[in-house]
Design a protein around this nucleic acid. Structure first.
Lengths: 192, 192
DNA sequence: ATACTTAATGAACACTTGTTTGTTAACTTT
DNA sequence: AAAGTTAACAAACAAGTGTTCATTAAGTAT
């Protein structure tokens, strides 16, 4: 890859990130980005169509790091006991902490992903009111459980939509009940 | 509320929805919206700042319907047995089907919520590779389970961010394990 | 029915966007 | 080191954005 391209794209990413710390993505203009990156506006359009595309490149970097940190435990462990999956092997939360500023930027309620956050928040509220009434396990953080539950339902809906509504709503409801009552089985699987 | 306002906003919502069926939200201009709504551009800016704000109004309508359909079962049932929560009481999937076009529009992978979808997809992929290895329950749809699992983790991360990283990553990982092993308790709670 | 309030309009403004075109200069390949 | 390639640049364009302001007319309240 041409060194000029690498430098330009790196400068654009840098500029976008530093702007996103200061203001909403919505309000950042391409002119501002190139101004901060000290590049010509045409250079931006040579590589990207929208600022969203540039942002996707930034996301790519973080996602690659996530994939690495998720797979990291398996590199040292020869066999994986699913039932006894220790919380220490779950590295994803460390990854998030390492990219703290990024995730804060990305997931703040007002930000980008308007609809999914809204839907998630609504379901979470409903969960808090209802499904948690019977729970008395003091060791479990209620807010975390509600958010877990809310977004898991969102996940099922997204999968359903991606499957083009092939299943019936009744099937979906049944699956939800089954998954909630499901537990991973304690088998030991040899690595790869 | 002034009848003119109600009519204008309704026309703008209508116009936006019909445009969103045809093309990406990104590519819809405010000029197009008012043109289709047969209104002056200034009228749009009287009520909204960005097209995102108008879109939020559309979302509000659907969310209100969701809240209703979620709470509907409890209106007829006097007591609620959490353990025996029948799938038939879970109305949320019917709500989604009733707004099929809307959800398809909103949740298609290329659309709006870039980052969360990306994050969800990555975690789902990783889940499919790993956590499902030991599962042999033929009654559970693997893709649904993976998506459920992926977005539930996303939900925990979002909650963590909203709590301003008060907890440690180790705590988060422990909570995840606890929640996965958690089951709702079979208590019967009197309605309100 | 009349007076008031204010939504909707049209025109105008500086600015950003997305695109194109020719020129300059940096990089790669031989 | 020279030749060929192409990124970065500057300038210019139509179209959209976000804002303001005076004018018209629809709606509300008395």
């Amino acid at each position: 890859m041409d060194r000029r391209v690498k430098k330009s794209i790196a400068a654009l990413k840098e500029a976008l990130i530093s702007l996103m710390v200061e203001k909403e993505f919505r309000e950042i203009t391409i002119s501002e980005i190139v101004q901060r990156a000290d590049l010509n506006r045409g250079t931006f359009y040579k590589h990207f169509q929208y600022k969203e595309d540039l942002f996707n490149d930034v996301i790519d970097d973080v996602m690659n790091d996530l994939i690495e940190s998720y797979q990291a435990p398996y590199k040292t462990i020869e066999v994986l006991d699913i039932e006894r999956l220790q919380s220490s092997t779950i590295r994803i939360f460390h990854h998030v902490e390492n990219h703290r500023t990024f995730y804060q930027m990305i997931l703040r309620p007002t930000a980008l992903s308007g609809f999914q956050n809204r839907l998630g928040t609504v379901i979470k509220q409903l969960s808090l009111e209802d499904l948690l009434v019977g729970s008395d396990d003091k060791a479990i953080n209620k807010d975390l459980l509600a958010s877990y539950h809310a977004y898991s339902i969102l996940g099922m809906i997204i999968q359903w939509v991606q499957d083009e509504f092939k299943n019936t709503p009744e099937y979906m409801a049944e699956q939800l009940v089954k998954i909630i009552h499901y537990r991973p089985i304690g088998v030991t699987v040899p690595k790869k």
